[in-house]
C-alpha cells in the first residue's frame, strides 16, 4: 500500500537523477481511509525519520490539511493522533507519483506502487 509513511521514504532512482528527487508528487490519486490501531509511542519515535515538509505537502495532495506547516517542538496527544491518521490511515489506492526533478512517473495500482525501472533507466 502507499501510505504517507512509505511515500516519505521513497525517492526517484532513475539513472542520474540524484538531486531534487524527493519527495515524489502524488497525481490523480484515489484514496481510502482505513482505521489503524493508535500507538503513540510508535508515532513519537518515528518522527526523527520523517521529512516534515514533505509529509505536510503530501498530506495536502491527498486532501488532508490537519498538520501545521512547521514541525512543532512539543508533540501533544492531539497532534500525535493527527500524525497517526496522516501517516497510517490514508491509503493511496490508485494514481501515480512523479519525480519533481526528472518527471519519471511511478504508477500506483491496487495499492501497490511500481518502482521498477526499464533497463536503460537504471543507474
Amino acid at each position: 500500500m502507499v501510505r504517507l509513511i512509505t511515500h516519505n521514504l521513497l525517492a526517484c532512482h532513475v539513472k542520474g537523477c540524484t538531486t531534487n528527487n524527493f519527495p515524489l508528487t502524488f497525481q490523480d490519486v484515489q484514496i481510502e481511509l482505513q482505521e489503524a490501531e493508535f500507538n503513540p509511542e510508535f508515532v513519537r519515535n518515528l518522527l526523527s525519520r520523517l521529512d516534515w515538509a514533505a509529509l505536510v505537502d503530501a498530506a495536502k495532495q491527498v486532501g488532508d490539511t490537519s498538520l501545521p506547516p512547521e514541525e512543532p517542538e512539543m508533540m501533544d496527544d492531539d497532534l500525535l493522533k493527527k500524525l497517526h491518521h496522516v501517516l497510517l490511515e490514508i491509503h493511496v489506492i490508485e494514481g501515480a507519483m512523479t519525480c519533481p526533478n526528472c518527471k519519471h512517473v511511478y504508477p500506483i495500482s491496487n495499492g501497490i506502487p511500481n518502482m521498477l525501472l526499464a533497463e536503460h533507466e537504471i543507474g
Partner: peptide, 13 residues
Amino acid sequence: EVVWGDVLGDVWR
C-alpha cells in the same frame, strides 16, 4: 505496506 521493486534498485532515501 508493500512496494513493487527490485532489490538492486535504489528507491529509498
